[in-house]
Nucleic acid binder design. Sequence first.
DNA 1: CTTACACGGGG
DNA 2: GGGTACGTGTAAG
Length: 809
Amino acid sequence: MRGLLLDIDYSEEETQPVTKLFVKGEKETVAAIDRSFSQFFYVEAENPRKVEKLISMLEVAGNGGMIKPKSVKAVKLSRLSKEVEVLRVEARHPNDMHPLRHKIRELAGVKEIYGYDIPPMRGYLIDRQLTPMDGVEVTGEVEDENGIKTITLDSHPKKIEIEKPKLNVMSFDIEVFNPTGSPRPEKDPIMMISLADNRGLKKVLTWRNLPTDLDYVEILPTEKDTLKRFIELVDEMDVDILLGYNTDLFDFPYIKERAKQHRLKLTLGRDGTEVVTRRRKMATATRIRGRVHVDVFSMVNFLANIGNIRLIHYTLEDVYRHMMGKEKPDFEFTKFVEAWEKGGEHWNRLLEYSLSDAVATLEIGEELLPLFVELTHVVGQSLFDVSRMSAGQLVEWLLISEAYKRGELIPPRPVGDEFEERVEETFVGAYVMEPEKGYHENLVVFDFRSLYPSIIVSHNIDPSTVNCKCCKKGEATVVPELGHMICQARRGFVPEVVERVVKLRGDLKAELKKHKKGTHEYEIANARQWALKILANSFYGMLGYPRARWYSKEGAESVTSFGRHYIHETIKMAGDFGLKVCYSDTDSLHAKLNGKSREDAIKFMQEVNKNLPGIMELELEAFYPRGVFITKKRYALIDDEGRLVVKGLEFVRRDWAAIAKHTQEDVLKAILKDGSPEKAANIVLDATKMVLGGKAKLEDLIIYTQLKMPIESYRAIGPHVVAAKRLREVGHEVEPGMMIAYIEAKGAGSISDRAIPVELFKDKEYDADYYVDNQILPAVMRIMEVLGYRDADLKFEKKKQMGLDKFIG
DNA sequence: CTTACACGGGG
DNA sequence: GGGTACGTGTAAG
């Protein structure tokens, strides 16, 4: 059978490890079963022959029996490009890997062990050279099992070229009952589940029978039936990719708990299996066998981390506005209970809002999936994994795969002292210019994104080439300022891979010109070149990341040293051309047009590019009509479409009062949208006047902070802890996870002493000074002070009015 | 001054 | 698979 390798899964059947490939063919999706893969690692030893003998006789007690290696044999590989003979040890079972490695580590003469920290699924893909989301051919015996056709492989699956089938993409979203502020999965039901797919399906499943005229609403008898219907629809629609927004951290864990309460198995798997949630300390991810669960938020977050999307907040609403240029309805989470209980127009709006979340998630997902599918192709790991990886992890898995192909040993991930030592190692990073603080108009931003990959390639920077022993004096390249010697006799592994990525991208950019924008071919080639660009730009970060396998402090600092050299040159050229550079960070250059036209700016860029060596290229990021620069790494810009680009200012969060958040937002808009710092100053004055005059609405003063532990566990008694105690005193049930909503009251004592839960605030007087001095002013002052305002200028006081009017003209 | 705790996305 | 998420903010102590 030939088809698309949608996903891969590893499990155990009667203690035998089994790898399952889910292959989407023209007619159906099958599970191909491979029982032939064994995990392995390599042992480097002083005397390989002797150690080989020791290993072959090895027996370790563990896993309820005696563990023996499946096989051991000597092979010739390379380590940092130098040939080395090592022993390949295969394990009968993945669980044997750990005890075997530890026992072997203790054998006399063993120097290092490689490749033990590659999980079976990933190792399988690398060893078999398969690419998920790409063509595969499987052969073997067919049988039906659990409702899915199964093929027991009789040979290794083969990577092939295929016409890509259209995938069934569905998005979903849940709304949950939240009477205590934050919903408690053990108690609070799921009110509704919305679904949208790429074939026009739009549905809201709910179990509350309130009048509504919305035709996409399907009413079910109970919450359990609603969940069952969701599972049924996923199966019926034969979903390949299931999308959600923050579903890893919220929806799936929540649904799982609700299903547990109802003793319902969440059998979303294509083979009828339950979803598997891997709960890790900080991240959880839910896997659905035979389908790919993609959390759109994690893709968005990835693009935010690499600087491709820059927003103040990454809510679905904000991301949708930014990416699709459309508004979606909003619904206050504090109004959920009322809508659920009382129905009416609120109920209709809640249903609409819920569906709009699923629709927006689908649209954003469809926009981003091509990129992540291409990353999957290049990196060679599953879409499920790739969509959740950081840029550094992507590069690392690409390198692991490339290393394996070349017979290069995979360095272990650094642990313990090695990691600690690396953290201690600091080096001079990129050049960041002190910005010309304040408000500017007519800005152009260039970036040098390909700077670091070009440096790595053209200067051959690799863990093995910095200060190598092989080059004679005069042969190696000398790094500016640092004096490191870079080997020129031997090509490094990292630059070789970077070069391949960069070259592939160059080819694609040429191919792109052959296609018309908007055609399928163009979109695919464009996603692919984008993927390659992201990867190329991530190698440097990896070199300097203490947890990276191919870490090289000397390599990383050599890259930044060359980088500083080039950016300084470019800044100088911009100045000579007549642009006024007001900020620069690493590989970017922000300049005022300074009377020049946009065309002139582009001419300048072309001029620079003419004189740059190799693949190095200065690119136009965008023109920005207005901007305000605050400090290094903190600035805000507005583009031609009126979109705000905010860097380093996103410090107003839910544990801040709404009045502070709104004032900060309004201030930024006044400065950037209206170009009026004066208007911004007046906004702050009005806000402080209102608060000091006792006129603020209580709901704008509420601070939401989550109680993360039982009250007794707190050593530092913060305001939300005191507020929670007060709630408990009047008989409320207080438990970890609850959102505490409180207001600061006027009076004596610390902030904590005066934190009153909203429910108990009643006729109390709020602490106006706190809201002005600790909420509004800190939120806006960073911005306002670079515009020449002091906090006293923005705090409404009667006696100062006269002077201030004069000041702001 | 150091230490403790919370934020993000979701509802 | 496994893990030290991660960088930055306020208030308590």
